[in-house]
């Protein structure tokens, strides 16, 4: 013990004269034969434990698999049903993209099948070209200005 430790120890002892006046003894009784039996008891538990790790893992897997299946099902159900790339665009973004110079709508519309046409939140009616013509005809819409602009 260094001098510093010794001084610290004395300091502590000075603060607690009653505590340090108590003789140190072990006041706890241990039942007879405890320390003879105890190693065997621990040994038995340890042996039991080393025999059962596979069983424990199987039990854990049996509990974890249904939970995992539920999580996968929940995640799958909560995901948007549309193509994520399409769903990621807002209608405004799609319009901006459609009117940009790089965007050739005619080519894309010609290449795309009807099923591939994107569905926007704000669009509630989808018409085939024939249906669109029938709509124009039925509502007597004049397309002259539009055709001149083109």
């Amino acid at each position: 013990m260094t001098m510093k430790d010794h001084n610290e120890e004395n300091e502590v002892r000075k603060d607690a004269p009653m505590l340090f006046g108590i003789p140190k003894q072990d006041p706890f009784a241990v039942e007879e034969g405890f320390f003879e039996r105890f190693p065997h008891q621990v040994q038995a538990l340890a042996s039991q434990r080393s025999r059962t790790p596979r069983l424990i893992w199987m039990k854990r897997a049996a509990l974890a698999l249904p939970a995992l299946a539920l999580v996968i099902f929940a995640v799958h159900s909560l995901r948007a049903p549309n193509d994520p790339d399409v769903a990621a665009f807002t209608p405004d973004e799609a319009l901006q993209y459609a009117t940009s110079e790089q965007f050739d709508t005619q080519t894309i519309m010609a290449d795309a099948t009807e099923a591939e046409w994107p569905v926007f939140d704000s669009v509630t009616v989808q018409l085939t070209p024939n249906e669109a013509l029938a709509y124009v005809d039925q509502h007597d819409i004049d397309l002259t200005d539009y055709l001149h602009q083109q």
Partner: peptide
């Protein structure tokens, strides 16, 4: 006394 053999001051401690 079966579990504790100390005197009163040991008990208090």
């Amino acid at each position: 006394g079966e579990h504790f053999t100390g005197d009163e001051i040991q008990r208090k401690l």
